[in-house]
C-alpha cells in the first residue's frame, strides 16, 4: 500500500514539521518513506507545503500530483489542493482558519478546529500537532501511539514538559477528528 499525503499552510504553522512527523513515524514503523518539501522561491511568499509518501514497497516518486490525503492549515491551501486530491481521498481541514467549503462529494472532508484547540491547550504553536492527532485518527495510515512515540525524537519532544504537552495535543486532535467522523456518520445515516 502506498499513501501520498500533502501538508500545506502558512510558513510558521509548522507544516513542514507535520510532514516530518509523519515521515519519521513511518520510518520507525519500518515503512518506506519519502519526504519532499517545497523549497527556494516557492517558500519565500510565506506558504509552505510538503509531500510525504509512505509505502510498504519501494517508492517510485516522492511527488504527488493527485495525493490521497491533503492536510490544509489555511484557506489558500484548501483552494490549491481541493481539486487535486484523488477521488475517494481524505481532506483534513483546519476549520478555525479555513472558511471556504469543499465542493466535492467524492472526498471525505474532516474538519478539525486545530488552531482553536491549540489555543485552548495554552500553546498556539501546537496546532500542527493537534492536526497530526486528527491525521492519525482520520486516515489510519499509522497509529496514534506510533506518532506519540516518535514525537520524542523530534524537536517537539526534547524537553519532557513539551513532549507531554504535545502528546496531549495529539490526543486532543484525535478526539476532535473522531467526533467529526461520528457526526458525519450519524448525519449520513439520518
Amino acid at each position: 500500500m502506498t499513501i501520498k499525503s500533502v501538508f500545506a499552510g502558512f510558513g510558521g504553522q509548522g507544516v513542514l514539521m507535520m510532514g516530518y512527523m509523519l515521515a519519521l513515524t513511518a520510518m520507525r514503523q519500518g515503512k518506506n518513506v519519502t519526504y519532499l518539501p517545497s523549497y527556494g522561491a516557492e517558500v519565500r511568499g510565506g506558504t509552505a507545503n510538503c509531500t510525504v509518501v509512505v509505502s510498504d514497497d519501494e517508492i517510485a516518486s516522492p511527488v504527488a500530483s493527485s495525493p490521497d490525503i491533503a492536510v490544509v492549515m489555511n484557506n489558500p491551501s484548501l483552494l490549491k489542493y481541493a481539486n487535486l486530491v484523488r477521488p475517494g481521498g481524505i481532506m483534513l481541514v483546519n476549520s478555525t482558519l479555513v472558511g471556504s467549503v469543499v465542493n466535492r462529494q467524492d472526498l471525505n472532508v474532516v474538519k478539525v478546529p486545530a488552531t482553536d484547540l491549540a489555543h485552548e491547550l495554552g500553546e498556539d504553536r501546537s496546532a500542527n500537532v493537534v492536526m497530526m492527532g486528527a491525521f492519525a485518527q482520520a486516515t489510519g495510515v499509522l497509529s496514534l501511539e506510533a506518532f506519540s512515540e516518535a514525537l520524542a525524537e523530534t524537536n517537539l519532544g526534547k524537553k519532557p514538559k513539551v513532549l507531554e504537552l504535545n502528546r496531549h495535543a495529539l490526543q486532543v486532535g484525535a478526539d476532535s477528528a473522531r467526533q467529526a467522523l461520528e457526526a458525519a456518520r450519524s448525519a449520513a445515516s439520518k
Partner: peptide
C-alpha cells in the same frame, strides 16, 4: 538533481 537534494529518506 533538486529532488535528490531536497528529499528526505531514511
Amino acid at each position: 538533481d533538486g529532488m535528490i537534494g531536497q528529499m528526505m529518506e531514511p
